[in-house]
Amino acid sequence: MSETSVQAGSLPKAPGSLSMIVVMTAVATACGLLIVTAFQATKNAIEHNVATITQESVLEILPDATRQIPFGVDKSGAVVREPAADADVSKIYAGYDESGALAGIAIEGSGQGWNELKILYAYAPDRQCIFGFKVLECRETPGVGDKIATQEEFLANFKELDATLDPGTRAPEHPIVTVKHGTKKDKWEIDAISGATISSKAVGRILQDSTTRLLPAITGHLDEIRKAGAE
């Protein structure tokens, strides 16, 4: 390089911090606006699709049910029939067979694995057990964590998972818990997937929280829920 080319003034002047901040802010604002517009434009279609998939999933995990009625459990433990879409409630779906008898209750639960996890499980109030399970939303590591949705051995945990409530306190007698693969002894334990312990534990945690919080409220309003099927 010649001496003259490096003289002051011959090099391109570096932009000041202010111009960088202004450009980044402008681009970020434009990007933010684009995202909000896309969110608003697709919101209704997404809600409709999610509702359809949830309905199908409810009838899938409650095999004897031919129709379902949505309910919501609010923070005080009150059960609301057909809550508004944006109501701050935990969603449950009562499934009824052709004669109008209660065929089970599908309960939505969510929590954190590696990413957010949304599940649906079937609860039989008469047998006091969980007898069905489906993953609604899962962004766990493909081929590892996402086995919670597909691995038959893991799904077998939910064929008759004990969720008995104490008759006095109505709290679960034994909180549902995930145990290390191959060490399951009791009916309320979930046998984890080897190599996907975090995701398996997340499922156990979601079920434990959900059953502890919702089952007392559901069993307390069971007559109401049963009557709705006969209408």
Binding site: A38, F39, A41, T42, A45, I46, N49, V50, T52, I53
Partner: peptide, 9 residues
């Protein structure tokens, strides 16, 4: 992400 969710779950 939004578009795919709106088209097909």
């Amino acid at each position: 992400d939004y578009l795919i969710k709106a088209v097909s779950i």
